[in-house]
Design a protein around this nucleic acid. Sequence first.
DNA 1: GGAAAAGTTAGT
DNA 2: CTAACTTTTCCG
Length: 814
Amino acid sequence: MYAKVIVDVPAKQTDRPFDYIVPEPLRDWVAVGSRVGVPFGPRVLQGFVVELQESSDLSAAKLKPIEQVLDLYPPLTPELVELGRWLSETYLCPYIIALQAMVPGALKSKYERHVKLSGDPSYDDGLFRLPVYDEIIAFVQSKGSVELNALLEKYRSSGAAVKDMLSSGTLVEFQFIKGSAPAKTALTVFPPEQPLQYVEQIPARSPKQRDVLHYFADHPGPVKLSELVAQLKISASTVKGLAEKGIVAIKEVEIFRDPYAGRHFQKTSPLSLTDEQQAVFGEIKESVADQRHAVFLLQGVTGSGKTEVYLQAIQQCLDMQREAIVLVPEISLTPQMVERFKGRFGDEVAVMHSRLSQGERYDEWRKIMLKQAKVAIGARSAIFAPFSNIGLIIIDEEHETSYKQEESPKYHARDAAIARARKHRAAVVLGSATPSLESVYRTTEEGGYFRLLSMKSRVENRPLPKVNIVDMRDQLKAGNRSMFSRPLYKAIEERLHKKEQIVLLLNRRGYSTFVMCRTCGYVASCPHCDISLTYHQQAHSVRCHYCGYAEREPVVCPSCQSEHIRHFGTGTQRVEEELSKLFPGIRVIRMDMDTTTEKGSHEKWLNMFKNRQADVLLGTQMVAKGLDFPYVTLVGALAADSVLNLPDFRSAERTFQLLTQVAGRAGRHELPGEVFVQTYTPEHYSVISASHHDYAAFMREEMAMRRTGGYPPYCRLILVTFSHEQLQLLVRTAETFVSRLKESGRDVPGMDVLGPVASPLARIKDRYRFQCMIKYRGGADAARLVRQTADSLQDTVSKHKLQISVDVDPQLLM
DNA sequence: GGAAAAGTTAGT
DNA sequence: CTAACTTTTCCG
């Protein structure tokens, strides 16, 4: 038997399968999707089996056997191996990168290079040697074997000596692939069938052992040793005594780290649906029942009860003995959300998100693998949950940009979901209050086969909150220079008085704090990137968001020596300061990157707010999503249009979505809500239609703009970014690329190559960046042409370490 | 990606 | 002529 293997070298030349012999003893272990260790050139690499065959076209002399199988079960299903192929072709990345992206981080290849003494004392040949040789030998001997990097680190100045000893054979190198992530095990006690019949055998001087038997009489079934010891306040040796008598058995049993251990989820039952919900559910249910592939775009206003529809649709799917995947944006995967799913489906739910430790994430993934979970809920990468019989995929807040991965493979979870659903004949539900234009377009006749479902009213017919637009130019004219307009100030005052709660949104983008000199206008900027440095209060430092460069906050201007240099901008910290100045004694919870990095902090703050231990929840984007607190009656967007001024054709869409989302946080329960939107552009259609909760009006305007401007969804985009330290070479290569692509795309109708131009982020980490945009329509195979053209520049790329990055369907045009 | 092989250059 | 350095090739 022979296996085709994709090896772990993400390069053009190795981006193809290599044949290996499957040795007899490994036959039962090697399958499509297995992770294996294979000899490749001079070393052993990790790889994935993508095909098995009876014969190979290669001569027997060239073939080598697979060295090891790395996991008990293949970490990828054949379907996922195929999906990986699709990812690599659609998003133009090496196959191995796509395959790696689908397995949990714990299984990413880790190679360790170790050295040990060869045992052949050839160094003792009487020749003079530096004393450091003997030191190294003694060190390696004492440890048995040492990791090469550690050794080089320890004897940093004697790297040559280590190298010399390796080449002379005194030291030998061996490397290994760090095996599969170790499953955690626990000692577990297995009781006999009739515990009480053994009580007689226990001598009276061992009362504790009798206690154990009585315990098992009440609680049949195995139990963790540690738990038993804690519950009965006995020592482990007591149980061991029983085991030695052969009455109980103690075995190592694999356990899952349960990130939600010790928490009880209130079991919930299906709520009764409103007519609107019922209608929507009916459609989805029918498609799930028929096992027919379909994509539903569910447009439901905030608070219309989309989640309940999801829950019942999942139930339907489980009843069909099929599995379901639920994707939610990372920041709305709150404990509240998890609770709703665990409450309905209990242990059948696996939760995957970035705040879990690597081990926890691995265990959740394995629950799916071992068919212990039927529902996977998680952020973007949960779309790769290794299920084999998917009936339903739900993508909540489908318009969220976080569904697009910014690193290779630059996939969009929505499209990956559809690709998977087709193979499984599964239904896809894309839910949002503000669906993306791309998805809406695909519900139209010219755009695709999506079916539009909508829910226009909130549950129990609660009204949507009243939205007030505040023109900040008027505030300025009236002499109010604070970041709180008069109307918002009054509203805050009133809520404080009534002991109701307030959510304040400050869109950080474009408003991060920077350091500027008021005398000469100097702005502290990164020496390696074309971007200004961001001020961080705790460390009194300024930092670069792109390369991590940091320096102390300057006290005098480096340019003109003036002392009038200070930090500017409206960060959340400053809003917090101003709030406490304006409203002494106000209790503010600030949620931003600085306060939510610690594990569990996110949850802690939200719980505090929920328990009304604070009056105001102040934050960036993350306060706009999915939160649901009954006492919130006021929402303020402090700088609603900060996104609007960004040079991105999606800025109006983003503004509309953000305002609609944040407005939806108010008045979700008995108390009515009110919203204030502060803006310098009150006449903009995105602001106006958001204030009227008028999605249709916004959609009409924006679609028209996109059509005239020639932007998605009326065409598709590919963004190609080139980067290199030398500007000249960079520009020359980018120009060559563009002219070659134009040449080969000459006969492709509707394909347009723009640029090259300097990237909006013109330099990052000392590398200049140029980009070119490809617009195309319909099924034109633009991606293939781009790949061919990029490949034709391969020599320049590898010779000068020039980087070409291709982003199909980019979300950020940076 | 990394080592070996092939090709190129410079130094006596 | 070869050692040192660079480029190319290939890995199953």
